[in-house]
Amino acid sequence: MVLSLRLEGSHSFSWNGELRFAFRTTVVPEKVKPVPLDLFIVLDTSGSMTIIDNPPEVDDSLIAGTAVVDGHEVRYLKDDIGVKNRLEVALDAIRELLEKAESTTKVTIITFSDNVNVLCRRVPPSVAMEYLEGITADGNTALYTAVKKAISLIDENPARILLITDGYPTDVEDEREYSKLELPRFSQFIPIGVGEYNAKILRSLADLSNGRFYHVNDVSEISRIMEEEGAKPSGGIRAKVDFFSRFPLNFVNYTPPIYLGTVEGVVRIYGFVQVPPRYSGEVVRVRLTYTDTFDEREHSLERSISLTPATDSAQFVSGLNKYLLWEVEYYEKMREISQLLESGMQVEATRKMQELKEIAERTRKQDLIEATRKIMNASDEKEISSEITRKMRS
């Protein structure tokens, strides 16, 4: 077997009062190899993609005209000034991604503006490259229609959908409609928002598929994101993690049902249950099912944790993992901050960030301390939300 499964709990014993039992499940690829992956590129080609993020100092002779796009006035520069706009930079990043992709990767490219166009469907990267030629930007932002089209083309193969947009949707503006979408199993949305856009919509798409949401101020950052999110060797595909408990399960960084698709790196899933006083028996059990990338057979692994009542307070304390309790509390606090920001409660969210910092320092985990620093130094709500979703499922 090429995947290993660990289940750790915050307590070894129950006690006289109700117990908040935290758990961490860790899936680790022990060996990896390249695997076929369905890669979707859903690209915004609305008029705002002609914006130049870092325009040079220009005089009026270099301005081709002005227009209002997605409610914002923009200037259009002439084509021959030697500076690339958002669309051109994004296309360069996509070409770089396709050049590095495994030949077994199947690529689907969808563009959207006033209409949605499927340029190619499940073709090799070298063939997909040809469809990038001649793409231009104009019109509005049919985001919902594009997302629905991408979902309709996904099958049971592990799929990664890289969505790039820089505008507010002009077809379906109600954020709640996006959270109602049903995604096929083993698919994962990776939304990338550039400049001005509806962050709640992109965040909901990431949350629906346990994906990661990226905010960028400059489209040139997309190249780095493509490098991070491009297909990598995997230890297992069509991986699913199921949890069982006689008590209600509460998850803090993933949303069940948990379909991992491919397992390219370490996956950690955090949660907790409330255990009654003096409880004896199984508290939580986890089952991992996946297809091995080496023998192409389905495998299943299970782990469980049980508690027995402590005989005295010393024994109870000896079985306590306070660092795991703090770690779960940390991810709960991150989720709380994100929800406060979405509700427009910036002052309360800022106060919670200080609490997040204190928890991170208690855990002594350098990655949590660094993630907190990035969140506290973020320039706006979109950047904070992006950092949180990425850390939650990194």
Results as ranks from 00 to 15, higher is better:
Val283Ile: 14
Tyr270Arg: 01
Gly281Ile: 05
Gly271Asp: 06
Gly271Ala: 11
Val283Met: 08
Ser280Lys: 14
Asp295Lys: 12
Val286Asp: 01
Phe272Asn: 03
Gly281Asn: 06
Thr289Leu: 08
Arg287Trp: 09
Phe294Ser: 03
Ser280Leu: 09
Gly281Thr: 05
Arg297Tyr: 12
Val275Ala: 02
Pro277Thr: 02
Arg285Met: 12
Gln274Asp: 13
Tyr290Lys: 08
Tyr270Val: 02
Thr289Met: 11
Arg278Met: 15
Asp292Asn: 15
Val286Pro: 00
Ile269Gly: 02
Asp295Ile: 09
Thr293Asp: 04
Asp292Gln: 12
Gln274Lys: 14
Arg268Thr: 12
Arg287Ile: 10
Ile269Tyr: 03
Val283Ser: 03
Asp292Met: 10
Phe294Leu: 13
Leu288Cys: 09
Arg268Pro: 03
Glu296Thr: 12
Gln274Ser: 15
Phe294Ala: 02
Thr293Leu: 09
Tyr290Ala: 15
Glu296Ser: 15
Phe294Arg: 02
Gly281Lys: 04
Val273Ala: 09
Tyr279Trp: 02
Asp292Lys: 07
Val275Cys: 05
Val283Asp: 06
Val267Ser: 01
Tyr290Ile: 11
Thr291His: 01
Phe272Met: 00
Val273Cys: 03
Gly271Ile: 04
Thr291Phe: 08
Glu296Cys: 09
Leu288Lys: 08
Tyr270Gly: 02
Arg297Gln: 15
Glu298Arg: 12
Thr291Ile: 11
Glu296His: 14
Thr289Cys: 10
Ser280Asp: 09
Val283Lys: 04
Ile269Met: 06
Pro277Ile: 06
Asp292Val: 11
Gln274Gly: 09
His299Gly: 13
Arg278Asp: 12
Thr289Asn: 10
Phe294Gly: 02
Pro277Asn: 05
Glu298Asp: 11
Val273Gln: 00
Glu282Tyr: 01
Val284Ser: 04
Val273Gly: 01
Thr289Ile: 13
Pro277Ser: 04
Arg285Ile: 05
Tyr270Ile: 01
Ile269Leu: 12
Val284Tyr: 03
Ile269Phe: 07
Arg287Leu: 07
Arg297Asn: 13
Glu282Lys: 10
Tyr290Ser: 10
Arg285Ser: 13
Val273Thr: 07
Gly281Asp: 07
Arg268Ser: 13
Phe272Cys: 00
Ile269Glu: 03
Tyr270Trp: 05
Ser280Ile: 03
Asp295Phe: 07
Gly271Pro: 02
Pro277Val: 02
Gln274His: 13
Arg278Leu: 14
Val284Met: 11
Glu298Cys: 07
Glu298Asn: 09
Ile269Thr: 03
Val267Trp: 05
Val286Ala: 03
Thr293Tyr: 09
Pro276Thr: 07
Glu296Pro: 00
Pro276Tyr: 09
Gly271Tyr: 10
Arg287Thr: 12
Phe294Val: 08
